[in-house]
């Protein structure tokens, strides 16, 4: 297997840098070598650019892929949107010589050429496949005895013909990772349903997107959890900022939202601040206290 380059995308570094910090710290603690893909630009976001113009979408994605080819590393993504754009573009370009030539004609203008020599990974499937649930569990001293609502996010799983990560109807691999931290993955109705952010709906039809978020949050709340665990900053934003927005219509959720790397960070002994929970819209001090108590070895009542 090749070494990894971290592709952070737009939303994480520019709006949720806490997730980036948590990711770097967690990779370091687990001894996984991974350096930034430095000159990367927007993946580009599948919701808008893939709809607008396929060749533009492929060309910008291929530039990012080529940056990793030049370093001879695979790409590690921490966002379902980046994963979807880069993986799909990589598959398309590897298999379609016509499109590859077309894209390379554009890339030539910046002195680059797509060759198709690397793979695109998502941190969730990477940890599950290449590190493994057992090894991850072994790295954890104090299991986090909390209840979590896991949200996979659409593009981690679908289209299944390309992701090849198994069923999108009742997937388990992400739950297994979450449970490796000691948390309980609590089942809830509509678990695989969309958060509402994708496809450019959030950016152009905010209200509409929040109806879908509300559907999810209502069911998550009913299940009685300590937090939501996601694998994508768009879902993260939708749940985190969405709760604040939905307060205006009388909802009161106050459920902390964590990217998996943040949860893993907590399980590895990092503090809530170190994994950037204070940079979320929803800051739930009761949750942070509970985590601190577990980390300090005090008995908690669950």
């Amino acid at each position: 297997m090749k070494k990894l380059s971290l592709f952070t995308g737009c939303l994480i570094p520019n709006r949720y840098p806490g997730i980036e910090k948590a990711t770097m710290l967690v990779l370091e603690r687990l001894g996984i070598k991974c350096s930034y893909l430095k000159e990367a630009a927007c993946c580009p976001a599948p919701g808008i650019y893939r709809s607008f113009d396929k060749i533009t979408w492929l060309t910008l994605a291929s530039r990012n892929l080529v940056l990793a080819e030049e370093k001879d590393t695979d790409i590690l993504t921490i966002c379902n949107g980046c994963f979807s754009s880069l993986m799909d573009a990589n598959n398309i370009l590897k298999n379609d010589a016509g499109l590859r030539n077309e894209v390379n004609a554009h890339l030539q203008k910046i002195g680059k050429e797509y060759r198709g020599t690397i793979e695109v990974r998502h941190i969730i499937e990477f940890l599950h496949t290449d590190i493994g649930v057992k090894k991850l569990g072994d790295a954890i001293d104090k299991p986090l005895e909390i209840r979590a609502a896991v949200h996979y996010g659409c593009h981690l799983l679908k289209p299944t013909r390309d992701r090849k990560l198994g069923s999108a109807e009742c997937p388990v691999f992400f739950d297994e990772l979450v449970e490796a931290t000691g948390a309980k993955s609590v089942p809830y109705e509509g678990k695989t349903s969309c958060c509402g952010a994708g496809g450019g709906v959030r950016s152009a039809m905010l209200e509409t997107s929040f109806r879908m978020t509300e559907y999810k949050l209502d069911r998550i709340q009913k299940a009685g959890v300590d937090c939501i665990i996601d694998a994508c900053p768009f879902c993260h934003l939708q749940y985190d900022a969405g709760q604040v927005e939905l307060e205006k219509s009388g909802k009161n959720y106050d459920i902390p939202v964590l990217h998996f790397t943040q949860l893993l960070g907590l399980a590895l002994g990092l503090t809530s601040d170190e994994v950037g929970l204070h940079l979320n819209e929803i800051v739930n001090l009761k949750f942070e206290e509970k985590i601190a108590q577990i980390q300090n070895g005090n008995k908690t009542e669950i």
Binding site: P46, G47, S51, C154, H155, K158, P159, A168, S193, C194, G196, A197, G198, G199, G200, V201, A204, M205, T208, S209, M212
Partner: peptide, 10 residues
């Protein structure tokens, strides 16, 4: 433009 591209239908 109301589709979130969630791929459920597909």
């Amino acid at each position: 433009w109301m589709c979130t591209t969630c791929y459920n239908c597909q």
